[in-house]
């Protein structure tokens, strides 16, 4: 089954990959270890999970203004996600997507964290997210 969501590109580009879905907001500083590309916040649903190379689907960015810098460091460390699907954009996540330099999309016509599940195959291109359920 394939579902297509329509939105607005935050960082232009196209990418295909496996989705990693967080239903909770993600912290950058204090929330991820950029050297390993892993979520380290103990109270988080994805605690200990690696996002490197995945298309990270999340509702919003929370916490410190170090958010973008930490995601920039994932790019410089080779642990970055391959794409970002952002439920609700903020200055933190917009700048984070820009400096991670991966295709990113927001303002979708359905809640991406509800429609997409971890492990689904996702194609991000031309202001759409094509989701193939696994």
């Amino acid at each position: 089954m394939t579902i297509v969501l329509h939105g607005r590109m935050v960082v232009p580009g196209s990418v295909a990959g496996e989705a990693l879905v967080s239903h909770e907001p993600i912290s950058g500083w204090g929330g991820i270890d950029p050297a390993r590309g892993v979520i380290i916040e103990p109270r988080h649903e994805l605690y200990g999970v690696c996002f490197a190379g995945k298309i990270l689907v999340f509702p919003s960015a929370k916490g410190s203004s170090g958010w973008s810098g930490f995601f920039q460091t994932t790019r410089l460390s080779g642990t970055a996600p391959s794409g970002l699907v952002i439920g609700r954009l903020s200055a933190k996540s917009a700048l984070g997507a820009v400096v991670t330099r991966v295709p990113a999309i927001t303002d979708l016509d359905a809640d991406p964290c509800a429609v997409i599940a971890t492990g689904d195959w996702v194609v991000l291109a031309n202001s759409t997210v094509e989701v193939t359920k696994q």
Binding site: S65, G66, W67, S68, G69, Q72, S90, A91, K92, L95, G96, V98, V99
Partner: peptide
Amino acid sequence: TNCEGVAS
């Protein structure tokens, strides 16, 4: 101010 980051 927005919550800016190191690049902005």
